[in-house]
Simulated assay, not measured.
Amino acid sequence: MKIGIDYTVGVYQGSGIGRYTRVLAHALAAVDHENEYTLLWARAYGQGGRELPRLDRASSFPPNFRARRLPLTNRALTAGWHRLRLPVPVEALSGPLDVLHAPDFVAPPTRRARRIVTIHDLTFLVVPQYAHPPLRAYLGRAVPHNVQSADHIFADSEATRRDLIRLLGVAEERISVVHVAAEARFHPFTEEERAAGRRTLAGAGVPDGPYFLTVGTLEPRKNHIGLLRAFARLRRLGAPHRLVIAGQPGWGFEPIFAAVERHGLAEVVTFLDFFPDPLLPALYACADLLILPSFYEGFGIPLLEAMGSGTPAVVADRPSLPEIAGGAARLVDPDDHTALTEAIWTLLHDAGAREELRRRGLERVRDFAPRRLAELVVARYRALA
C-alpha cells in the first residue's frame, strides 16, 4: 500500500499541529515496515521572503519512507487547492497513492487515493470570538468542504468528535478518535538532571528560581490575561515564583503585554519566543506547576507533556482538557480568576496533592503511547484502502 502524508506542517511548524505530525510520522516509521510512505512537503516562507526554519528535514526515516518536495510553495498550493479549489490531483505531483493523510484540517484533491483528514478542533465554530477573523473565514469555508469530501476523519479528542457530529453533521462511523501521542523525551528529571537543566535553561533566557509555566501561542483563546490577573494575586499573597510564558505571538497578543505592565509584573514574567525545541523537556521538568487556563482546546499537548514530565498541572475545565487529564490535573473555571488563584495557591502548599497529581499524570500518559497511536492509524489506512 502506498500512503502519502501531507508533511509541510511537520517540516516547518513548531506549534501543536506540527509536533503532532512529526510524532505521528516517526511513530509510523517505528511500527510499519511493510507499507510505502511518501512525506509530501512544500517550501514555506515567512516575512521578508526567507524560508522558515526547518524543524524536520524528513531524512531520518527507514527505507520504506521517502520525502518528496513539491515543486510549488506551500502558499501557492494552499491558494490553488483550498481557496480556488483547482481540481489538480496530488498524484500529479506525488506519483500513485492508495491513501492520502492530511493532518492539518484540509486535504488536496486526489485522483484515486482515499483521503483522511485530521480535525484538531472546531474553534472557529465553537468559540468563534477566539478565532482570528481571517482564519475563521477561511476555515469556515474550507473545513466543512473537506470534512464532507474526506473518506474518513481523525479527531484528536472525543470532544472534537462530538463537535463534528453536532456542528457539521458528520456521521459517527466516519470519525475515529486518535489522540496525540506522548513523546518519550518528556520524562521526570532526577535531581542531577534538574540541576543541569536549570543551567541550560539559564542560557536560554529562563532566570534562576522557581517558576510556573504556561505553553501556547499568545492569543485570546489561551486566556493569558486571566492567568496574569491570577498570578498578580499570587505574588501579592507571597508566592516567590516567576511566570514563564512559552509561545510565539499570535493574533491579538498586544493586550497580554499590556496586562503585564498594568499588573506591575514586568520583572517576574518571562516570555520565551522561538524557544529551542530540544530544551522543552527541561522547561517542563523544572517547572513547579503547568497552568493552562484556556477557554477551549481541541486536545492540549502541553498538558500531555507536563504529565509525562511529572509536573502537576492546573487546567481549565473546558474541552478537551478534562478528557485528556483523566483525573490527573486540577480543574478550574477559566472565567473565575479567584478560583484559578486559589487552585494554584492551594496546590502550591499541599505537597501530598502535588505528588498525587504527579503519580496520576505519569500513569495517565501511558494511554498516549506513540506505538498505540501508530497502530490505530495503520489499521485505519488498511481498512480504507
Rank of each mutant, 00 (worst) to 15 (best):
G327M: 10
V23T: 14
G18T: 05
A385H: 13
A102L: 03
D288M: 03
P128E: 05
E219Q: 12
V268N: 08
P255E: 05
M1R: 12
G209W: 11
P278R: 11
Y296C: 00
A181Q: 00
R235A: 12
P128C: 13
R66D: 03
D151G: 15
V332N: 06
A385P: 02
F65Y: 07
L97S: 12
S176H: 09
E172T: 14
E219R: 04
G95P: 01
L213P: 04
R229I: 01
V269H: 10
A181W: 07
T200H: 10
F105V: 02
A131N: 08
I17K: 06
P134G: 07
V177R: 03
L279H: 03
Y138I: 08
R194Y: 06
L122P: 04
S176L: 01
G10W: 02
D350E: 15
P207D: 13
A142Y: 03
R112T: 14
P302D: 09
R162L: 12
S157A: 00
G4C: 08
L243A: 10
P103F: 02
P134L: 01
L357C: 15
P207E: 14
R136A: 15
E355K: 07
T38F: 07
R236L: 15
V269K: 13
Y138G: 09
R161L: 10
G140Q: 13
A195G: 11
E254K: 14
R235K: 14
Y284N: 01
I175R: 06
V332S: 09
A107F: 05
G209R: 10
L28A: 07
Y138E: 11
L86G: 06
L304N: 05
S60Q: 15
A137V: 10
R174Y: 03
L39R: 06
I116N: 00
R83Y: 12
P96W: 08
G226Q: 11
L39M: 13
I245C: 09
L304R: 03
P108E: 10
G308Y: 00
N74R: 13
G80K: 07
A232C: 06
R85I: 04
R57G: 13
F271T: 00
E193H: 10
E172M: 09
H179C: 04
N223R: 04
R236K: 15
K222N: 02
V315Y: 07
G361K: 13
L243C: 12
P144L: 09
R19T: 05
T38R: 04
R330M: 14
A239E: 10
G226W: 12
G18Q: 04
T190C: 08
R371W: 06
D98T: 13
H179R: 07
I175N: 09
T217Y: 05
Y296R: 04
A92F: 12
G4F: 09
G4Y: 11
A379Y: 07
V180K: 02
G48Y: 10
A58G: 15
A266S: 14
L40Q: 02
R366N: 01
L348N: 09
L135F: 04
W251G: 00
A196T: 13
R358M: 11
